[in-house]
Amino acid sequence: MIPLDEVDRALIAALARDATQSASALGREFGLSQPATWRRIQRLREAGVLVRKRLRLAPDKLGFGVTVFLGVKLATKGRVSLEDFERAVTGIPEVQTVEHVLGLYDYRLRVVARDLADFERVLRRRIMTLPGAGAVEANVLLSEERLSGPLAD
């Protein structure tokens, strides 16, 4: 962990909102020169604080009107079972994220579908047929708000 000052935290917050901003624009916003801003951003990247830039898509604009969070409990446990499940689930295009979690379920999946009928098809034909798939709990996303988090006030 590297020490972060107020300017570092402000840069992180600004980049979390829009990672496409130039060092020059960020420098103007925070009263820094472009080279000083670029050096700070590079230091944050090299320290592993800034990992990558991500494009955030609007699923509904692409025809995916339903987002469902699935809790998946594996029917059988063991190292091979986890690896087989992870390898297979990452091959399903409707599955946006796969998180191995501790708790009631072994995995939490974010799944997008065109509508509920499409989600049911994905669930029955793809997810429930995965190696080791057992109990599943579905939670349909009603709305989503982007929270700033502890560093991006």
Rank of each mutant, 00 (worst) to 15 (best):
A47Q: 06
K53F: 00
L55E: 06
L55D: 03
L55Y: 03
L55C: 00
R56P: 02
L57Q: 06
A58C: 00
P59W: 00
D60K: 03
K61T: 10
L62R: 07
F64G: 03
V66K: 09
T67K: 06
V68T: 05
V68S: 02
F69P: 00
G71V: 08
G71E: 01
V72N: 00
K73T: 15
L74N: 05
A75M: 14
G78Y: 10
S81E: 13
E83Q: 13
D84K: 15
E86T: 10
R87D: 10
R87F: 07
R87L: 10
A88M: 13
A88E: 04
A88G: 08
G91K: 03
L104H: 12
R108E: 14
L109F: 12
R114M: 12
D115N: 13
L116E: 15
L116C: 07
F119I: 09
E120S: 15
E120F: 02
E120Q: 15
R121C: 01
R121G: 00
V122W: 01
R124H: 11
I127P: 01
M128S: 12
L130C: 04
A133D: 02
A133I: 07
V136P: 13
V136S: 04
V136T: 13
E137Y: 09
E137S: 15
V140G: 09
L142R: 10
L142S: 13
S143N: 12
S143K: 09
E145G: 12
G149F: 04
G149T: 11
P150F: 08
L151K: 03
